[in-house]
Every structure is written in structure tokens, then in C-alpha cells.
């Protein structure tokens, strides 16, 4: 009953806000509640990122910020909803790789040019992880084995047509080898499969494999970044090996294109300030991510511009574009 009462109260509150927002005068941004949508479920990585970033943001912007889940079609429903809202900065969305994939696959009316990037908050490099005492010693060994017998190297990825799939596919393409992809439901399952010798290699982020790495059970074979990571001085990067592949799990925020530039600036500055605060920085550190995760303004927009064609092209190559 308590829950029901709570729900009713929330409904009344929401209704109140709705009425209020209908009549509020928009002379100075922000003057009313900001609705922030995420496409994934409560308690997941994107939810935690958004909630942590919103903590200080509320104090900075001095308006209520309500984060709600709008799941369905890997972000398709959320992006379609954003397209239907006015471009006034009161509707913001969390953006992830999945959303770019959904856009690239043509499952939503939104495309890259319909979104202005506000800020990036997470940057978790992708790495290919192997068992510490397994039959493959390093990435060169794996690539050689894959070249010798195409399809013999099984790679564990979290879902198909995902960042894991695209990242390992991109590395394989650059190295001229073909991997066999085995989809799992998440990083945890991939680690178990790796430890149980079901797969040869898994696509994981440091935040996913740290526990098993510290215990000496798994080790990253290669990071898909340009420079070696501070915490992993012995692990080569894709760039060192001569493959121009840079892939990471990132999360950020965007608004609909057409939002007035002054509103975009206010939001970008506010996010910059909120994410510089130690609450947010502690969250990054706890999840094995560096302060360079935070990217605001045009840099973040440029980052999206750089990633978008890669997704378009790869999704097309893999046959995932719905025509």
C-alpha cells in the first residue's frame, strides 16, 4: 500500500509539474523542470552515470531535474520521443554507443545531425582480455592463430551489433583476420566463459575485469586506445601494433538540434562544473575511469562526429542496417 500511495503522490506531483511547465514563462533558461531521459534500466551503468552527474547539476541550474527511463528498442523510443519535443533544452537525453548503433541501423527517426552534444561523462576503454594462464600468451599469438585458421578464435561479446562486437570486428578487420563472435548478456558472463575456457578472448572494460585482474586470473591483451593506460603499463595498445582502432564504452548527454546556442552554452558550462566536482570525480575513480572522461562542448560534438561514420559503415558491413 505504501508503494501505491507513493506512486499516486508521484503522479500528482508529475501532473503538477506538467501544468506548471505549460504556463511557465520562458524568459530565462532554465526556469522550469528539466526532463532527462535514459534508454536503459534503473540501476544500470547509464542510470548511475546520469544520476551522479545530476547531483551537482541541480544545485548549479537551480531547477528540478527528473531522470526517467524510457526503454524500448535500444534507445529508439527515447530518441523518437526527443524528436517530438521542442528544441528548448528542457528535454535532454543520455547518449551511449547503443544509441549510435540504433541510429545507424535506421531504427529511429533521429540521426546524428539531430543531436547537439552537451557533455561526455564516461570513457571506459575497450580491451581484449585473455586468461592469465591460458593457451594464448598475447595479442600477437591470438592474431596469428586467427590468421592460420579463420574462425578458430572465439571472442565473447556483450550482445551482437554492440560496441563489443564492433570494437573486436574493427580490430580483426584492421589485422586482416576473422573472429567468431559469441554473444553473452554482459561482462560478468564473459569473464566466466573466459575462465571456463569456453572462449579464447573477451571484450571487456577495465571496470568489468579489475576484480579478476587483481586476483591474477585474467589479463588484458590489448587496449583499443592510442596511448598506454597508466594502470596497465605492460599492455600494448592497438595503435602501437599498427592498427588505427580506438573504441571505448562512453556515456554522454545531448539535446535536440535547433536548441538555441545560449541554452546549449548554459548546459555545457553547467555540466562542466558538475562533472569537475569531487562527487563526480570520485565516481569516475571508483569505476576505474580517468578524469579525461569528461569532455564538454565542441570537443564532445567532434568526438560524436568522428564516431558516427564508423558506426554507420560497420553496421552496414555487418548487415545490420534495416532498409
Amino acid at each position: 500500500m505504501k508503494k501505491l500511495l507513493f506512486s499516486v503522490c508521484m503522479a500528482v506531483l508529475a501532473l503538477g509539474f506538467a501544468v506548471q511547465s505549460g504556463v511557465a514563462a520562458d524568459d530565462k533558461y532554465p526556469s522550469k523542470q528539466i526532463n532527462w531521459y535514459i534508454h536503459s534500466s534503473a540501476g544500470g551503468g547509464t542510470d548511475i552515470f546520469s544520476r551522479t552527474a545530476a547531483l551537482r547539476l541541480r544545485r548549479i541550474l537551480k531547477v528540478p531535474i527528473v531522470i526517467s527511463t524510457m526503454s524500448g528498442g535500444s534507445g529508439a523510443r527515447m530518441l523518437n520521443h526527443m524528436m517530438e519535443q521542442p528544441a528548448d533544452g528542457y528535454t535532454i537525453v543520455s547518449l551511449t554507443n547503443s544509441n549510435l548503433a540504433t541510429m545507424a541501423r535506421g531504427r529511429t527517426t533521429a540521426q546524428r545531425e539531430d543531436i547537439i552534444g552537451i557533455a561526455r561523462g564516461c570513457y571506459d576503454p575497450q580491451s581484449l582480455v585473455i586468461k592469465a594462464d591460458g593457451k594464448h600468451k598475447d595479442i600477437q599469438g591470438i592474431l596469428a592463430a586467427a590468421k592460420e585458421k579463420p574462425g578458430s578464435i572465439k571472442i565473447g561479446v556483450a550482445h551482437m551489433a554492440s560496441i563489443d562486437h564492433v570494437a573486436s570486428y574493427a580490430l580483426g578487420k584492421a589485422a586482416g583476420v576473422e573472429f567468431e563472435f559469441v554473444p553473452f548478456d554482459g561482462g560478468g558472463e564473459i569473464i566466466v566463459a573466459l575462465l571456463g575456457d569456453v572462449i579464447d578472448m573477451g571484450v571487456l572494460n577495465p571496470s568489468e575485469f579489475m576484480g579478476q585482474y587483481e586476483a591474477g586470473k585474467v589479463k588484458p591483451a590489448v587496449f583499443l586506445v592510442a596511448d598506454r593506460l597508466e594502470g596497465f603499463p605492460d599492455t600494448p595498445t592497438a595503435k602501437e601494433l599498427g592498427y588505427d582502432v580506438e573504441m571505448a564504452t562512453w556515456r554522454g548527454v545531448g539535446v535536440k538540434a535547433g536548441t538555441p546556442p545560449e541554452v546549449v552554452k548554459i548546459l555545457r558550462d553547467a555540466f562542466q562544473e558538475s562533472m569537475s566536482h569531487k562527487i563526480y570525480q570520485n565516481y569516475l575513480a571508483d569505476n576505474s575511469m580517468g578524469p579525461e572522461s569528461v569532455l564538454t562542448g565542441e570537443e564532445w560534438d567532434a568526438f560524436l562526429d568522428q564516431k558516427w561514420p564508423i558506426w554507420k559503415e560497420t553496421m552496414d558491413e555487418l548487415g545490420y542496417v534495416e532498409k
Binding site: G43, I48, G188, E189, I191, V192, M210, G211, Q212, E214, A215, K217, D286, N287
Partner: peptide
Amino acid sequence: ALGIPGSGTTAVILGALLVHGMRPGPLL
């Protein structure tokens, strides 16, 4: 012991352990 949740609820509890600065795994 492994940082691998055995159910939906434990997946949430795993998240809570991380929030409190404890990384589930053999070292926990």
C-alpha cells in the same frame, strides 16, 4: 566471490557493493 551476480537482485547488490567502494571478486 567472483563479482558475477547469480540473480537480478544480486546484480543490484553488486552495484551497491561498488558504490561503497568494494569490488566483488576473489580479493573481496
